[in-house]
């Protein structure tokens, strides 16, 4: 009798504690690879360290922050990053919403085919992508330049190009004014599918009754879109935009591969993450690099806070 009670107690104990045991690996890894670097970087940002394990770290207070905030390169990188984030985010969401809306329409067939096609860029290897874009943006014989030079022979396009002061062949990755649009194009191409899938998931949670009621009331498709679809999508929109802001402020791969570690002509494609990388890993100021990472963190915090505020649902629930 007594044995049974103990057995029961043990059993109950394990049943209660087992879940914690099973989720513990994640937290163990998180402590080592997530939490530790976060706090170590904070510690590091108040020190001078050249990035060699054996050399000492010297406490220098807020000098790293002061140096970074007074560094013209930081401000240039910040400006580039914000412009790049805006130029690459807006098309992503407009296109993503549009595609999601179209795919979600009842009469559209082959939905899975379209979904797969749109999502494909997201999972394509970076190496293959950068090779294709190198061919696309090549100077002077790249595909886009071939297109532009051919179009220029038509009077209509000649006028447009003259008006825009474009003189093909264009140095897509060589002239400062074109670097950010070129990089944005690749980012938009890669992330549109991701946003489409997010919005599609959001669309499918909207009760069909709302649409039916609208149809009964004789609403036009744009009225349906702006009065029903968009407001119902607010939580998804909020999530997707915040993710874009976070991703945009940390953008590194695309500009690094397309214009190189110095950010191309006049550092037009030099982002905050590239500034951080070069400061730490090339110039050996690991303390400064850690300070930059914390400044970027503060910026991300502020910008995602703003974007959440702007897109907050009317009821205040998200």
């Amino acid at each position: 009798m007594a044995e049974l009670t103990i057995g029961k107690k043990v059993n109950r104990f394990f049943r209660r504690k087992a879940p914690y045991f099973f989720i513990s690996p994640f937290f163990a890894f998180f402590l080592v690879f997530g939490a530790f670097p976060i706090f170590f970087a904070l510690y590091l940002s108040f020190h001078d360290w050249n990035g060699i394990a054996t050399s000492p770290m010297v406490f220098i207070g807020g000098e790293n922050y002061w140096y970074t905030l007074t560094d013209p390169l930081f401000w240039q990188a910040l400006k580039n990053t914000i412009v790049l984030t805006i130029q690459s985010s807006i098309p992503q969401h407009v296109l993503g919403l549009f595609f999601a809306f179209v795919i979600n329409l009842g009469f559209v067939k082959y939905k899975n085919f379209f979904k797969t096609t749109l999502f494909l860029p997201y999972i394509t290897s970076t190496v293959a992508v950068s090779m294709i874009f190198a061919i696309l943006f090549g100077y002077p014989y790249g595909f886009l330049n071939y297109l532009f030079v051919s179009l220029q022979k038509l009077p209509l396009f000649q006028t447009i190009f003259n008006w825009l002061r474009l003189d093909p062949p264009l140095k897509w990755l060589g002239s400062a004014s074109l670097i950010i649009p070129s990089i944005s194009t690749q980012i938009v191409w890669r992330w549109t599918g991701w946003n489409t899938i997010l919005y599609l998931a959001g669309l499918q949670t909207i009760p069909p009754e709302l649409y039916e009621a609208a149809r009964v009331d004789g609403a036009k498709w744009y009225q349906v879109f702006f009065k029903i679809t968009l407001p119902s999508l607010r939580p998804v929109l909020q999530f997707a935009v915040t993710m874009s802001v976070i991703g945009g402020l940390q953008i590194f791969n695309e500009p690094f591969i397309m214009v190189g570690k110095n950010g191309g002509t006049g550092r037009a494609g030099y982002t905050l993450a590239m500034y951080l990388y070069q400061t730490g890993f090339e110039w050996g100021y690991f303390g400064s690099a850690a300070a930059i990472s914390y400044l970027v963190f503060v910026l991300i915090f502020i910008f995602s806070f703003i974007s959440r505020r702007l897109l907050r649902s009317e009821e205040g629930v998200s």
Binding site: S175, A176, K261, N262, G263, T265, G266, E282, W283
Partner: peptide
């Protein structure tokens, strides 16, 4: 030298392209 190299590379680009 590596700081100088990075700075000169981008300034040279600005002179030639811009």
């Amino acid at each position: 030298d590596s700081v100088a190299n990075s700075v000169i590379t981008s300034e040279l680009g600005a002179v030639l392209q811009e």
